Simulated assay, not measured.
Amino acid sequence: MARPLVVGGPRPEDPRRGDVSGLDARLKGDRSVGCLVLSRPPEGAGEGAQEALVALRCGVPALLWDSRDARDLSTPPGVVQSDNALLRDLSGLREAVTELRTEAHGGSLNGRDDHPGHHLVLLWDDPTRPVESPQLLTGPDQGVDGR
């Protein structure tokens, strides 16, 4: 059964913040992780970006984070805590995030900034979706300039 991990979360099994090599080893050895909650947004070359890169390389199918800058937070915001109902059923995660976003925006684009759904980001990898390109992909006999 797929389960979430919260980087910097309160549970003993949650990975520590700042230990990217430990996270890498953990994810390579534990294929039951279905969602990784990042410690902060994956921007630049910071912790969140390193955590996301490790998770994607290890095949974790879902990444979740709060888009607000979490530098001053000692733990992830409540909406992404491991004991939150949002993470109890990963099979309904996408729908739950959509519902939170809809609530946050109140059906309009001018949503309440304090609602947790306004800042929640879900990256969902869909291995069944084929990659399509509007351009023809070059093969070994097409190469550059027809060579």
Rank of each mutant, 00 (worst) to 15 (best):
D113L: 14
V131F: 15
C35S: 02
L120Y: 04
D24H: 08
L122G: 09
G111I: 02
R68A: 10
Q142H: 14
D83M: 02
D113H: 14
A2W: 04
S108E: 02
R17P: 00
P76A: 08
R11D: 03
S133H: 15
L56T: 14
P12F: 14
W65A: 02
G78L: 14
E47V: 05
E95W: 14
R40L: 10
R147F: 15
T128R: 09
A85P: 02
L64N: 03
G78R: 12
Q135G: 06
G18R: 00
D89W: 08
L64E: 05
D19H: 03
L87G: 00
V97Y: 01
M1T: 11
C58P: 09
L86E: 11
P127T: 06
S74H: 11
W124E: 13
R94Y: 14
A104N: 08
T75A: 05
W124A: 14
G44V: 11
G111S: 04
S67T: 13
P15N: 01
V54S: 08
G106S: 10
D83A: 01
T75W: 06
A70N: 10
E13R: 04
E99M: 11
P61V: 02
D83P: 00
D114V: 12
L23H: 00
L123S: 11
P116V: 02
Q81F: 12
D72Q: 15
S133L: 14
W124T: 09
M1D: 07
